[in-house]
Design a binder for these strands. Sequence first.
DNA 1: CGAAAATACTTTGAGAATCAAACTCTTTGA
DNA 2: TCAAAGAGTTTGATTCTCAAAGTATTTTCG
Lengths: 161, 161
Amino acid sequence: MGNSGETINRFLVEVFHEILRTEEESLAAYAPGLSLRELHLIEAVCLAEDGGGDNRSTAIAAARGVTAGTLTTAATLLERKGFLRRCRDEADRRVVRLLPTEKGRRVNGFHAAFHRELVEAVLGALTPEQAESFSAALEGLARFIRRKGAVPAGAAANNEI
Amino acid sequence: MGNSGETINRFLVEVFHEILRTEEESLAAYAPGLSLRELHLIEAVCLAEDGGGDNRSTAIAAARGVTAGTLTTAATLLERKGFLRRCRDEADRRVVRLLPTEKGRRVNGFHAAFHRELVEAVLGALTPEQAESFSAALEGLARFIRRKGAVPAGAAANNEI
DNA sequence: CGAAAATACTTTGAGAATCAAACTCTTTGA
DNA sequence: TCAAAGAGTTTGATTCTCAAAGTATTTTCG
């Protein structure tokens, strides 16, 4: 792969890791005692609320890619810390719905601002046409990942280490 | 932020998470009993070897952004599993150098192939000029993250939750 | 209707990965 | 030479995670 390929690959293996670390640091300064994973759970809950999405416990767990048990533990902790609240569904009393508290919405706003700045930093360096092809490239990557499962050819047939 | 901004942000919050999950799945099929974090440690060790980089324990820990203690534990486990080996430096006997075994190199090759496919999927969908501006945008993002620490304006001054 | 199956969530027990701090061994510098 | 600094390891605790077992509720169907 050429020079662009090198840059893209380095981005994938290094820079994203750095983004997460920076995000974590800025979070630690803003809301000590809240981990990035907890923040992302709050985000998922806020997103479900704003987007009119499914805010049932199971749906949130699926969105985050964790098991129901993991979600229960995390939600209990965030409830205790005052970022989320549980709400039993009256129509189907098996169901637990998750909602952000005011405090939860506030910390989610902080998080959204972080992402907004990140995106602005990227877009600011590009012409509108470049921005367009950039986002198209990302869509292509997303499609690739979702479609293929991305197992390198020959891996399954040659799986002895 | 406009429509491109939305795409970019969604990529940051969702697609990268999916990449990691896919990577984990394909790894599980190839090398059961090896976690993604372990794989990335092997990768760092191979990179230090190939790139003529610093392969001392501490340097690898810094590269992965973990403490020395964490690295020791992980390295011990990977040594037991046969992916890495330790090598005491003769010149300075405090130093421990980490090297991949043949098995370690093999699994790292598998991992590299995964990334190569990913990058090819992106580049394949772009013209050379688009590829160029894509990689420029990623460079811009990397610069932003490294320079700024990316704390949203006003966050430090207003840190009550 | 009413028992059996399915569903939604919680609890439990166990295993990574992580950190900070205390510790060991080795080198450096006054 | 000997105190201080450096490199790595060990220890004890915490967090995140999962699978599997458990509880409460609803749905299905005989």
